[in-house]
Design a protein around this nucleic acid. Structure first.
Lengths: 221, 221, 221, 221
DNA sequence: AATGAATGAGTATTCATTCAT
DNA sequence: TATGAATGAATACTCATTCAT
């Protein structure tokens, strides 16, 4: 019956959760993770639209039916994947933040983070494709964007307060800067992947780094 | 029939071209243009994959058959359209540059140009889709990127020397700045269209404007 | 498990039956009845093909597994339901017959019975669907028709002798009249449900009533 | 593009119609008829729901695509088939009417007509199934019933005035009698096909004949 | 050049049924 | 007996492309 994957599914109350899982639930959880792993592989390889459920299920060592026992639709799976990825990113940032002692270290860490996403361009491109898909399906767009935003919001809470001063300004302004950097990153990755001769990976990194430094001067409008 | 539209098809030696065309050729050329115009409308409305040949042909006042008499495939039409549009954009910039008398006017013109593209977001999105399509079809990617670059290069020659001082630095640096701004624009348009609640059109314009001003400080790497 | 439900399953030797049932068997029997009740609701609501096992099981307060512990297949359940209902109808008539004291009362009762079936059109339609299903599955048809007829025959015995004079003629003739009226009812219900504009419920009742009165003149052929 | 088959498609203005058809149109018409013939065979063999478009197309010597060039959907095809059959029946009645000299002959002819439909029970059963299908798809029901009614109405016009006196009463009453007889026929055919032991074909014919005679006394309600 | 009939590839999803617990 | 994860069969319809005129 594939319970609708809510943003919190994978991040339930930490205490009882993992501990309380009986054998059955553990198996279910494992299967879900296997499917997500397979989905990431197939989605990044073929793109969201071209990816076939059968391929994903097979990549997870099962058949179609198993997939539908865990996810309602292909979109649902994609959202779950985004959530997982976003959560992993957030956890990563959080961990690294804790390891920083000075504010400068934190700034450097964040710059590195954006640069690092270049290494995972396949996922960034997948995200672009998904947004395009949403745009072309108006009835879904609002719903998907909401779900997407919700995922970000829920996970962001855990990072709050850990960011260095210049990212602490008004929340609104902070978010705007983040969007600007992410959009730039998105655009650069697309261009670099489409035509590496026009802009190389090194150049993308350079532009991104400089923009990262400039962004502090951006004023919310 | 339907010769594969090469990048130069629409931009042949200007002088003999129109003159030498007999009535038959003129008719053919007119039909082709009508199809391209229709294609622009349908492609931006529905996207590449969802756009139907029938709709495009109908929008041009004909049926399928007419389409196939002028273009080999849907992809071929898509490519021709992108090429035509890219060329048109470049021509547009060149023309406006010529109309500028002071350096400040030129800077203002360029800022306006970027802002203006916000108004034609449908085409920007189609361009994203085009690049994504190219990425998912490796055999085409290199070819398309080359053709695309070639168009830009040919047309850029006419713009050279017209740009204001701060855009004149090393050509390489100038091109990098342009790519950075375009990428930012692309990313922002995508995000704004996908989720206007995350970043509004006004905010996109603001961010873009500020980046436009800052970009002079970008150093080529 | 789940023994194929034979026509006699629910009508075993009355005496030892209920008495001999131990707690376990009683529970089982109760569950079975709950499932049949749920099945009636779902089948009449959705039709045989569209009805989902999950819905039926859920309507009975359980899950799939419980269903398969009691019935071999969906078809098996369908058959059991038809059998139960047919038996119930016959029992109903018999009981009401007993309650009649004059011949006129009996005739009125019968007329009411036919009218009443209009109120339960959902079941009449399900019965049509059942017969159609049987027709499309030749291997089942003969078996089902036999079982169906057997039920009628067994239960009819109890009604014999209770019918008013004009229904007493030769049993063969009586049965023919009954079939004619039932067939007319079936056809009218189907048409009225399909297109109430062609024949309204009031008209159905009127036609049925007149035919009921005329039927005495029907001669067995 | 499969023009929506309107009730008049097959019965256009008689004079210019057949004559004006050019080779192309004649071919198209022939293909359509071939598909209808195939549809009748497959539909009556497998039933409406179970019949596969591919099978129908194949039976007509073509592939799916050819089918969709002539009919919008399976339902559309079915409606076209009903129209064709109804038209054929009407034509048949009309012709036979003309051949009658006395009123009594006409009544006998009509009685024979109803009896004759017994020979085409497969089609009657198909009609039952289709109505059931419509019932189970509420969003379609009204539309289908309307289309169905429209077909009957259009074709009925041609028979008007030809019917014997007792069928001439008020049109409303006449229609009700017709529905009653048809419903009875439907119900009897279903029962006879489901269980020939309960009511034989001979008995169906007998019952039908007697009802036919009685029907004159039916009063519209 | 243009028409339009014909081809045929391509797939997410539902659900009855089974099976391990 | 009951659960629920997993299996796998089954199918109408769209539309780019081709081809006979």
């Amino acid at each position: 019956m594939a319970a609708r994957t809510s943003p919190s599914t994978l991040r339930q109350a930490p205490k009882p959760a993992a501990a309380t899982l009986n054998k059955h639930q553990q198996k279910t959880q494992a299967m879900k993770l296997r499917l997500l792993k397979a989905a990431r592989r197939i989605f990044t390889r073929d793109g969201f639209e071209a990816a076939r459920i059968d391929d994903i299920a097979a990549a997870a060592g099962h058949t179609r039916g198993a997939f539908y026992a865990h996810f309602k639709t292909k979109e649902d799976l994609f959202l779950a994947l985004i959530e997982q990825e976003t959560a992993a990113h957030m956890d990563d940032i959080r961990a690294k933040m804790h390891a920083c002692t000075t504010e400068q270290e934190q700034v450097d860490m964040l710059r590195k983070y954006y640069s690092a996403r270049l290494a995972d361009r396949a996922f960034s491109i997948l995200l672009i494709e998904f947004k395009l898909y949403a745009l072309r399906h108006p009835r879904l767009r609002a719903h998907l964007a909401d779900a997407h935003r919700q995922i970000r919001d829920v996970l962001k809470l855990g990072v709050e307060g850990l960011l260095p001063a210049q990212f602490q300004v008004r929340s609104e302004s902070r978010e705007l800067k983040r969007v600007a950097l992410e959009s730039l990153l998105t655009g650069l990755i697309l261009e670099n992947t489409y035509d590496p001769k026009r802009i190389s990976e090194r150049q993308v990194e350079s532009v991104l780094g400089q923009m990262f430094d400039m962004v502090q001067d951006l004023s919310a409008s």
